[in-house]
């Protein structure tokens, strides 16, 4: 009972929080030059990690799909199937997991620190709205840079798959030629939509958790922890919901199949 009340309060709070940010954005209160600056900071910091993660995720999926296809003698489909499975599903989820740590937890730690050292209160007292000055630039920067990083990471998964195929002796060109035969426009659209939504989730959760952190250095640690747990859960939940929606739409209108 207590737990469910807490759950409702957190998610209600997050929705109100994102609404407030949206309203302020539409009132044109966003400092876009700060957003650009933040995007560069976040992007440069996380690019190397995203690329590494993308490569390995692609390779892992290629190994697994290869193993399963061998049982049926359908190795010819390796390129298409592993790329499709990675792009639609495993890729966005795993890379978003890492970004929620790198970008999300970092943002929430930064905001939580500003909160517990009373920097946010200082801004309030000096007559400004911290959401406008601190949160808005960060939330948009995180949305945009997470989205871009996810796209980069997904491209790297394709590359990782190709590299691994070459290692295990599947011709890289065959692998690549097979990709368009399975990966449909619909799948790419799905993975782009997922990437964008995960970017929004990471931004809202980490800003919310950081902004409302209380209680010294322990509070900062707790904010980081709770931010990454919430992020991971929501990413998995929304991944399922989007896949569900996509499959329902495809069945209804019979689109997206070859």
């Amino acid at each position: 009972m207590e737990a469910s009340r807490k759950l409702v309060r957190t998610f209600g709070g997050m929705i109100l929080f994102s609404l407030e940010c949206l309203v302020l954005t539409f009132q044109n209160k966003t400092k876009w030059n700060q957003v650009v600056e933040q995007i560069f900071q976040v992007g440069v910091r996380s690019l190397g990690m995203t690329i590494t993660a993308g490569l390995f995720v692609g390779a892992i999926m290629a190994i697994q799909i290869d193993l399963q296809l061998k049982d049926f003698g359908a190795e010819a489909f390796l390129g298409g199937l592993s790329t499709s499975a990675t792009l639609r599903n495993v890729g966005p989820v795993l890379i978003a997991f890492l970004l929620s740590g790198k970008v999300g937890a970092y943002t929430s730690a930064e905001l939580a620190t500003m909160g517990v050292t009373e920097q946010l209160n200082a801004i309030r007292l000096l007559g400004a709205n911290p959401i406008e000055y601190i949160i808005l630039p960060r939330i948009w920067a995180v949305v945009i840079s997470s989205f871009l990083l996810l796209i980069v990471g997904l491209m790297m998964t394709i590359f990782g798959g190709v590299m691994f195929a070459e290692i295990i002796g599947v011709n890289a060109l065959n692998y690549i030629y097979n990709i368009p035969s399975i990966v449909t426009g619909w799948s790419i659209a799905l993975s782009v939509v997922k990437s964008f939504l995960f970017g929004v989730l990471i931004a809202v959760v980490s800003c919310y958790k950081g902004y409302y952190a209380r209680g010294g250095s322990v509070g900062v640690g707790a904010a980081v922890q709770s931010c990454s747990v919430t992020n991971l859960m929501l990413i998995i939940l929304f991944d399922f919901l989007l896949s569900m929606a996509s499959s329902t739409l495809q069945d209804l209108f019979n689109v997206g199949y070859l």
């Binding site: 500003m114 009373e118 200082a122 801004i123 007292l125 007559g127 400004a128």
Partner: peptide
């Protein structure tokens, strides 16, 4: 709040901007 100035126990300076911007923050914001 415009009439009051509170000096916090800890400095609570915004650490992403310079001293000048810290001091002038309130002037600009208001």
């Amino acid at each position: 709040r415009k009439q009051c100035g509170l000096v916090f126990q800890f400095p609570a300076l915004l650490d992403s901007v310079t001293v000048f911007e810290n001091i002038s923050f309130g002037l600009r914001a208001r």
